[in-house]
């Protein structure tokens, strides 16, 4: 245990020294911003002259613009960048094993993501579509000045009532009330999914599979590879469907077909695996680029720190 602790301490010290070195010597991990002022004219019907309002905006600029006038170091964003780097390393630390740092990042993640989804749904759906239709005048004066709905649409009381019933589930008793909106939710899903799946995934898929088994060219010549391809596709679809056939035992010819079917499925899964690997590596590359480029300034693929 002792050498391990020593090893860790050493690693931490070296890593920390490297970070401080990078930060002090190169300024790595700093973010620069610029204040932008936008002047907007508002036309006031009562006033003759248009009123001018100045809006303040803060824009992030690449580090090589840091000596330009008006550009300053942003403490908020710099702090954020280091928080982001800490979060990244915190999650990666799970690869070593469960540890307090991972647990803290996990807790932050769970909490902030739940609130995030709630805030976004509130502003985009509840305010705009529910309140916008029930209280158009109030919304126009406060949250959505551009709203065009004139009269309150009382039909929207239905989802409002259902929403309250759904939230009733959080109450200690009377949870059955929430079954009504739940039934609406499930019934609607069942209804539109049934149609969508049957059209796009059933009839259209059959239609897509109907093809000539023997392909001839424009001059009437026999096209071997195209024919083989078509036969393989149609045959493979049929044997795979046989594998998913549950009403008969898989013996005899049916058994053979089903066995061919499972092979086709395995080839399919192999292809899927290959494709998935590709995606996952890209995600890792994305994270590493963040650490090396944005945070540590070790690489500069976008040329944001040239001449520095």
């Amino acid at each position: 245990m002792k050498p391990q602790t020593l090893g860790w301490t050493l690693l931490m010290v070296v890593g920390g020294a490297f970070l401080i070195g990078r930060a002090v010597l190169t300024g790595a991990g700093t973010v620069y911003v610029q204040d932008v002022e936008i002047e907007v004219e508002i036309e006031d019907e009562a006033e003759e002259e248009a009123q001018v309002v100045t809006l303040q905006r803060v824009e992030q600029v690449p580090p090589n613009a840091r000596s330009e006038p008006g550009v300053r170091l942003s403490y908020v964003h710099t702090f954020g960048l280091w928080v982001a780097a800490a979060c990244t390393l915190g999650i990666f630390s799970f690869l070593w094993g469960d540890n307090p740092l991972y647990k803290v990042t996990e807790a932050i993640f769970v909490g902030s993501s739940a609130a995030y989804a709630m805030v976004v749904a509130f502003w985009s759906e509840l305010v705009q579509n529910l309140c916008g239709n029930l209280l158009p005048d109030l919304m126009r004066e406060t949250l959505i000045p551009g709203l065009k709905v004139e009269e309150p649409n009382l039909w929207y009381l239905v989802p409002l009532v259902m929403a309250i019933m759904l939230l009733w589930r959080l109450m200690p008793s009377g949870g059955w009330i929430s079954r009504w909106p739940l039934a609406f939710f499930i019934g609607a899903t069942a209804g539109f999914r049934m149609m969508g799946y049957l059209e796009a995934d059933f009839t259209q898929q059959i239609s897509n599979t109907i093809m000539p088994l023997i392909v001839t060219g424009a001059d009437g010549s026999f096209q071997f590879w195209a024919s083989l391809k078509n036969m393989t596709i149609v045959g493979s679809v049929l044997v795979c469907l046989t594998y998913f056939f549950f009403s008969v035992e898989h013996t005899g010819p049916v058994g053979w077909a089903a066995r061919l079917g499972i092979w086709v499925l395995m080839i399919t899964f192999g292809a899927s695996f290959g494709y998935t690997v590709m995606g996952r590596i890209a995600l890792l590359a994305g994270r590493l680029e963040f650490l090396f480029d944005d945070w540590l300034w070790l690489i500069d693929p976008l040329g944001r720190r040239l001449d520095m």
Partner: peptide, 19 residues
Amino acid sequence: KLLVAFLLLVGCSAATIAG
């Protein structure tokens, strides 16, 4: 699934003959 197989067989035969 039998319906699928039926439509596929009829459709592909028709396509092959037509070609």
